[in-house]
Design a protein around this nucleic acid. Structure first.
Lengths: 135, 135
DNA sequence: CGACTGGATTGATAACAGTCAATATAGACG
DNA sequence: CGTCTATATTGACTGTTATCAATCCAGTCG
């Protein structure tokens, strides 16, 4: 189930505008963008990302939404399966945090030539392998 | 119908991770991300963006997909209504081109602190009104 | 152990999105 | 004007998604 996008297959993240995306690459990216294509999930991601420590417990997220607990859980799962979030259980609580490399990848793909520093070939960092340190 | 996102309402594009998105802002962004959440549309965008002159005729796009003509048209419409594409009729043909400011906006929103140049407050350019100068 | 709390999973339902065939529209051209 | 080409729109169908109530699972704490 956990479809960690094997982003390592790609040499780097070519901006969308450099050359037509391959079908596979587009599918991979679309999965992530689709996860972002919901106001609730975008806000969740933002809440988590902006929370101090870069992570937050579900109980910190839920109150921001007028949705049932299963629905909250569902959206978090979608973000997780898209490879945008990571979670870790700590006692009774589950903490979520964003995967910076994923956001950075998407950001880089959307960067237009004009927005990129002139001359720079690619803005995506060398994908520092954020440690899998899950308990 | 053309829901040009009144991006001018926002002072700038705060990265997702700076502070929780407002509900309105999230709705606006989600509409754009949702449009990107389909492999076909992502490829279309890429084809158009990477085409010389930054624009391309529908007849240049269609052959890349094994889809019916109405479906192609539908996807282009979705991208257009999301504010990502612009189109112009020239004779018998319709030319599409990306709206760089829109992509740039999304890119900036996703930029993580770590990816942003340290100290820089915001990566989104002051939305320079890219000139309509189509050759 | 047994109750309690935080969170995930399941199952059902209603809304939505992707696709196509058929049809319509807009401009070019004879 | 009539026809042809390129694209858009409509309508129908199907698969997917968002949501909730009910239930389950994992830790915690008496």
């Amino acid at each position: 189930m956990s479809n960690q996008p094997s982003s390592e297959a790609e040499p780097c993240c070519p901006p969308l505008a450099r050359e037509p995306l391959t079908s596979d690459w587009a599918t991979d990216l679309a999965r992530m963008f689709k996860a972002l294509g919901d106001p609730v999930r975008l806000r969740m991601l933002s809440i988590i990302a902006s929370h101090q420590g870069g992570e937050s417990c579900v109980c910190d997220i839920s109150p921001a939404f007028d949705l049932s607990q299963p629905t909250i859980s569902h959206h978090l799962k979608v973000l997780r399966e898209a490879g945008l979030l990571d979670c870790e259980r700590r006692g009774t609580w589950v903490y979520y945090r964003v995967i910076p490399a994923a956001l950075e990848q998407l950001s880089a793909v959307l960067a237009t030539e004009s927005g990129v520093l002139p001359g720079s070939a690619c803005t995506c960092a060398p994908a520092e392998p954020f440690e899998e340190a899950v308990s």
